[in-house]
Simulated assay, not measured.
Amino acid sequence: MNGKPAASRQVSAVLFDRDGTLVEDVPYNADPGLVTLMPGAREAADLLRAEGVATGVVSNQSGVGRGLLREHDVLRVNRRADELLGTLGTWVFCPHTPQAGCACRKPRPGLVLEAARRLGVRPEACVVIGDIQADVRAARAAGAWGVLVPNAATLRSEVETERWTAPDLLTAVRMVLDGREGS
């Protein structure tokens, strides 16, 4: 683990990236049968629920904009992941391609802001946990705190430049809970 927040902060919600963070990354997955949880994902979600912390998912799904899958497919995959995780509070995704220039696609803040709105919390009281720097940058752009949980797809330079990293999802959630205000 690389560091801990300098000061404790109020954490009302944890927002996860989907592919490569909560579930194994299957590029442009349209098949709920291919959904496999990442190690520790269910335990991390259970721990947050036990602590009364709201949860959600913020995910880029450019396969929709590329014509490789439909929004309906994304929703089916999300529902399957939600069943395996024990139901998270909200799922928000960006269907646009990187070239679309939308406000929602990570690293822009739109997904984080929308998830916070749906959960009824301030963006500043959110933590975003993801596997690439775009996830952490989206958090910062929204005023939230970001934690990077690297995997094989994460660039070494991203790991070296991020302030808060964790070796796995469960450790990241414990780090978040340990840094909460009043803990």
Rank of each mutant, 00 (worst) to 15 (best):
M1I: 15
N2W: 10
N2S: 15
G3K: 14
P5A: 15
A6C: 06
A6T: 11
A7T: 12
S8M: 13
S8A: 14
Q10S: 10
Q10P: 06
V11H: 08
S12C: 15
A13S: 07
A13L: 11
V14S: 07
L15G: 12
L15M: 12
F16D: 08
D17C: 11
D19P: 10
T21V: 14
L22N: 10
L22E: 08
V23Q: 05
D25T: 04
V26Y: 09
P27D: 11
P27L: 15
Y28C: 12
A30S: 13
D31H: 12
P32M: 13
G33E: 12
L34G: 09
V35T: 07
V35E: 04
T36Y: 10
L37I: 15
M38G: 01
G40Y: 07
A41F: 06
R42P: 12
A45D: 04
A45Y: 05
L47I: 04
L47Y: 05
E51C: 14
G52S: 03
A54D: 01
V57R: 06
V58M: 06
R66S: 08
R66C: 11
L68S: 09
L69A: 04
L75G: 01
V77L: 00
V77T: 00
R79Q: 12
A81D: 00
L84C: 08
L84S: 04
L85E: 02
G86K: 12
L88N: 01
G89N: 11
W91N: 04
W91P: 00
C94L: 07
H96C: 09
H96E: 01
Q99N: 04
C102V: 14
A103Q: 13
A103D: 14
C104I: 11
C104M: 13
R105H: 04
R105E: 03
R108C: 01
P109A: 15
G110M: 11
L113V: 09
E114L: 13
A116N: 11
R118D: 00
R122I: 00
P123N: 14
P123S: 15
A125G: 02
C126H: 02
V127C: 06
A134H: 02
V136G: 00
V136K: 03
A138G: 03
R140A: 04
R140Y: 01
A141C: 03
A142D: 05
A142W: 03
A144D: 06
W145K: 04
G146I: 09
L148G: 00
A152I: 04
A153E: 04
T154N: 04
T154A: 05
L155Q: 11
R156K: 14
E158Q: 06
V159Y: 01
V159G: 01
T161P: 00
E162I: 09
R163S: 09
R163C: 02
A166P: 07
D168I: 05
L170Y: 10
A172P: 05
V176M: 07
D178Y: 00
D178F: 06
D178C: 11
R180Y: 00
G182E: 12
S183T: 06
